[in-house]
Amino acid sequence: MLGFRDPVADAIGLLRPRTVIGPNLRASGEWALRFDPFLHVRVGGLVRGTCWLILEGQEPVLLQEGDTFMLGNPPPYVLASTLDTSPRPAAPVWAGAEDGFVRIGPEAVEDLYLCVGHIAFDDRNATLLTDLLPPLVIVRAADPQGGRLGQLIDLLATEVGVVAAGGPLVQNHLAQILLVHMLRAHAAQTHRPTGWLGALNEDGIGAALRAVHADLAHSWTLKELAEISHMSRSAFAEAFKSHVGVPPLEYLIHWRMSLARDALARDILSIPELARATGYRSESAFSTAFRRVVGSSPAQFRHQARQSSRSTANGH
């Protein structure tokens, strides 16, 4: 039986997030670092001080103490003490980290303390989240969720460089909690995101999404989902596509196939069991839907996943 809870928890669980916290930055004086593009998500916050975040193609943003930010598949960007400081590549500076910290400027003076982490996802399903995120989300210290996020950043900063039992586990869980709170804050901001993330804030559409995720084995119809949303079928279908970007039954099929790919890759269910768990009355109906969305049969996909796992285990 596949476990389902709510859209955010399901998506993050399916993404198999891998977190690397740090190195963190302690800096004084004038400095500027240029970072190359990277995949997936980076989260961070200012424990102390101020600095500029300059994302290619966007206006520079001044980050202040207590502010938290999230970068989603961002283009090149610069962190700097001032806008007129010439940036240097960050990679060699980051490579010189010691005990979880990079230091710029005199050690006796710490104008800035920046805590950062990188969250990488399973490539097969990463677009479930990254396609919904803008390059930059900022939650200010004074925002309604700012205080809670600031506390999480402080906790993460405390864990970096401390050799203690369970340290990596604590860092990973804190980073995932931070990610969820950043997603909530982003969804609540004035310019709401598209896709299922923004739709969760819509009473009717959100209720239908939560119902689907709570019981994916059910053979959902458009009529049932519309009734949950207290709308007519036509109004529900139009509103769902407007908020989520695809028709409701197409969303349902793609979500089922995302979970099916994950279960096949991890080899946790037989194909008949997986068909029942994802709402199909027969293995053939499930296989037809899977092939249409994924491009191969479930058996072929599982075989390829097993071969890939063996190659990885053998170091190839």
Rank of each mutant, 00 (worst) to 15 (best):
L197E: 10
E56C: 03
T312S: 08
H218T: 09
V78I: 15
R88V: 15
K241W: 03
G49T: 02
G161S: 06
S242R: 13
A277C: 07
P92C: 02
S258T: 10
P37T: 12
P75I: 09
T288K: 11
R26P: 00
A120P: 02
T190N: 10
A90G: 03
T127I: 11
I228L: 15
W220D: 07
E283F: 00
F236D: 04
M1W: 12
V170W: 03
D36S: 13
V244I: 07
H243D: 10
A208C: 08
G72L: 01
P17L: 06
L128V: 07
T68H: 05
Q145L: 14
G206D: 06
N24W: 07
V293R: 10
L63F: 04
L222V: 13
Q176G: 02
L183P: 04
S229P: 09
V47K: 10
S28K: 01
R124Q: 15
L259W: 14
R48F: 00
I205E: 05
D154Q: 15
M231L: 14
A235P: 04
V160S: 10
L209R: 04
L156T: 10
P248W: 00
S229W: 02
D84S: 12
G96K: 14
G150D: 09
D154C: 06
L152K: 00
S234R: 11
S308P: 00
P74G: 04
E107W: 07
A157Y: 06
V163Y: 07
R210Q: 12
S232R: 05
I54A: 05
L264Y: 02
D111V: 02
N24Y: 05
L2Q: 10
L264V: 05
T19C: 14
D131A: 15
R276K: 13
H186L: 15
A80H: 03
L222Q: 11
A120E: 14
H118C: 03
V170Y: 10
A263M: 10
N24H: 15
S28A: 15
D123E: 13
G105K: 01
E224D: 11
G49E: 06
E65C: 05
V20K: 14
S311P: 03
Q300F: 07
N201K: 13
G295P: 00
Q304C: 04
E250A: 11
G96D: 13
L71K: 03
N73L: 05
L55H: 07
F38I: 00
G195W: 08
I119Q: 00
A126M: 05
E159C: 13
A187M: 05
Y280M: 01
L225S: 01
R48N: 09
G315I: 04
P75C: 06
F240V: 11
M257H: 05
A27L: 05
S270G: 13
D203V: 13
G245N: 00
T82H: 15
L2E: 14
A313V: 14
V180H: 06
A95W: 04
L129R: 00
H303C: 04
Q307H: 08
G45W: 01
T194F: 09
A208F: 01
